[in-house]
Each structure stands twice: as structure tokens, then as C-alpha cells.
Computed example of a mutant assay.
Amino acid sequence: MVTVMLLAGVAEAQQFGYGSGPGWGRGNMMMGNMPGRGRFPIIDADDNGVVSAEEAASAAEEVFAAMDADDNAELTMEEYMLVRMGPQDGWNKTRQAAREKEKTERFGEMDLDKNDTVSQAEFIAGAKAHFNAADADKDGKVTPWEWRSQQWN
């Protein structure tokens, strides 16, 4: 169930912090006006209003497993983009193209050994870096304010 929820939230997302999917965080479906918008409430497993490093790591592992369609512990660009780009609703073609380009670049940044795949270790390292960047006060947790600041920059 959590993996299904994560996939729904990941659809148009950025890697770990990663955005919103159809109906998630747009105020018209599943999450409506819930605090934290996007996937924050899903990743905050204990509902205490912050995302801990453990919650972030667990979410990253689940997202990786959901993306790895052939279960070979590596993501191809196709596997990454298939989940990451979602259903392509087509509301703003220019923004959609820009986000696709950003996601393609992000895949390249995660592919540290430049073998055209992202291993689970590389994906987790990227998620950890994103978590650390969002944790502005370096207290080991990400608040909704830190989350949104990371998303909006």
C-alpha cells in the first residue's frame, strides 16, 4: 500500500523531494489541502510533522524498488523516466519539457560511474544529498518549511 502511495506521489516528482503527482497536492483529490503538500505526509510515516532521516531513507528505498521494473538493482533511464514523468497531462508543454530535461540531467548526476544506469547505492546517495540539502538547520529532520523551501528554489 505504501509503495502504491509513493508511486502516485512520485509520478511528477523530483528525486526525494521530489513534487506531486496527478491529484496529489493539487487540492482536488487525495491530499486536498493537507499540510505538507505533495509527498511530505506520505514520507512522514509517524505523522509527527517532520521527516526524519530514517523516514527519508525508507521512502527512497521503496521508491527505488518501485521504479526497478526488472528487479535487477539498477535503474535505466527508461525505468526512471517512466515513473518520474507520470501520465503527461499536457497542461503546460513548455514546463513539461523543462521538467523532463531536468529529470534527465538528474539521472545523469546520480549515475556516478557513468554506465547509463543508476544503482540502488547511487540512488540512495542522491536521496541522502537531497535530504541533507533540505535540512537547513542540520538537525537531522526536515520540517514542512524546509521541505517547501527546497521545493520552491
Score class of each variant (00 low, 15 high):
residue 37 R to G: 00
residue 5 M to I: 08
residue 148 R to F: 14
residue 118 V to I: 08
residue 95 R to V: 02
residue 149 S to L: 08
residue 97 A to H: 05
residue 15 Q to G: 01
residue 8 A to H: 11
residue 117 T to C: 06
residue 112 L to Q: 15
residue 127 A to Y: 03
residue 133 A to D: 07
residue 127 A to F: 06
residue 135 D to T: 08
residue 61 E to T: 09
residue 146 E to I: 01
residue 129 A to L: 06
residue 132 N to A: 13
residue 66 A to G: 14
residue 137 D to C: 12
residue 102 E to A: 12
residue 127 A to T: 04
residue 32 G to C: 05
residue 62 E to S: 09
residue 147 W to L: 04
residue 20 S to D: 03
residue 95 R to H: 08
residue 86 G to K: 01
residue 44 D to A: 01
residue 6 L to I: 03
residue 46 D to N: 14
residue 104 T to I: 02
residue 70 D to L: 09
residue 43 I to P: 00
residue 36 G to N: 00
residue 33 N to F: 04
residue 110 M to G: 05
residue 132 N to C: 08
residue 3 T to E: 15
residue 111 D to S: 06
residue 96 Q to V: 07
residue 119 S to R: 05
residue 111 D to C: 11
residue 120 Q to P: 09
residue 14 Q to C: 07
residue 84 R to V: 06
residue 96 Q to D: 10
residue 49 G to C: 05
residue 69 A to D: 10
residue 74 E to P: 03
residue 18 Y to F: 11
residue 32 G to H: 04
residue 62 E to T: 09
residue 34 M to F: 02
residue 79 E to N: 02
residue 128 K to P: 03
residue 126 G to A: 13
residue 61 E to V: 10
residue 133 A to C: 07
residue 9 G to D: 05
residue 45 A to R: 12
residue 83 V to S: 08
residue 74 E to K: 11
residue 61 E to W: 09
residue 120 Q to S: 13
residue 120 Q to A: 13
residue 110 M to I: 04
residue 114 K to G: 05
residue 61 E to R: 11
residue 124 I to S: 05
residue 79 E to F: 02
residue 95 R to D: 01
residue 72 N to D: 12
residue 121 A to S: 14
residue 107 F to K: 04
residue 136 A to R: 12
residue 70 D to H: 05
residue 110 M to C: 07
residue 136 A to Q: 14
residue 10 V to E: 07
residue 60 A to T: 12
residue 151 Q to D: 02
residue 21 G to A: 06
residue 43 I to H: 01
residue 118 V to H: 02
residue 58 S to D: 09
residue 11 A to F: 03
residue 96 Q to H: 07
residue 153 N to T: 08
residue 44 D to C: 01
residue 122 E to Q: 10
residue 125 A to M: 13
residue 144 P to A: 08
residue 114 K to R: 15
residue 45 A to I: 13
residue 103 K to I: 13
residue 58 S to T: 07
residue 65 A to W: 06
residue 82 L to P: 00
residue 29 M to G: 02
residue 16 F to I: 13
residue 26 R to G: 10
residue 38 G to W: 00
residue 108 G to E: 10
residue 134 A to C: 04
residue 68 D to V: 07
residue 18 Y to W: 15
residue 113 D to Q: 06
residue 2 V to A: 15
residue 16 F to Y: 09
residue 121 A to E: 15
residue 56 A to V: 10
residue 17 G to C: 07
residue 119 S to K: 03
residue 52 S to Y: 09
residue 127 A to C: 15
residue 25 G to I: 03
residue 85 M to C: 10
residue 148 R to K: 14
residue 3 T to I: 15
residue 72 N to P: 02
residue 130 H to P: 01
residue 75 L to R: 00
residue 82 L to A: 11
residue 144 P to F: 03
residue 126 G to W: 01
residue 19 G to Q: 00
residue 28 N to Y: 15
residue 50 V to Q: 05
residue 144 P to L: 05
residue 70 D to V: 09
residue 80 Y to A: 11
residue 28 N to L: 14
residue 63 V to G: 01
residue 100 E to D: 11
residue 73 A to V: 13
residue 92 N to S: 11
residue 117 T to K: 13
residue 151 Q to S: 04
residue 25 G to V: 05
residue 4 V to N: 14
residue 53 A to Q: 08
residue 12 E to L: 03
residue 68 D to F: 06
residue 119 S to M: 06
residue 106 R to Y: 14
residue 6 L to G: 00
residue 116 D to A: 13
residue 107 F to H: 03
residue 80 Y to D: 04
residue 44 D to S: 03
residue 99 R to H: 10
residue 130 H to T: 11
residue 47 D to C: 10
residue 9 G to C: 07
residue 91 W to H: 00
residue 113 D to I: 12
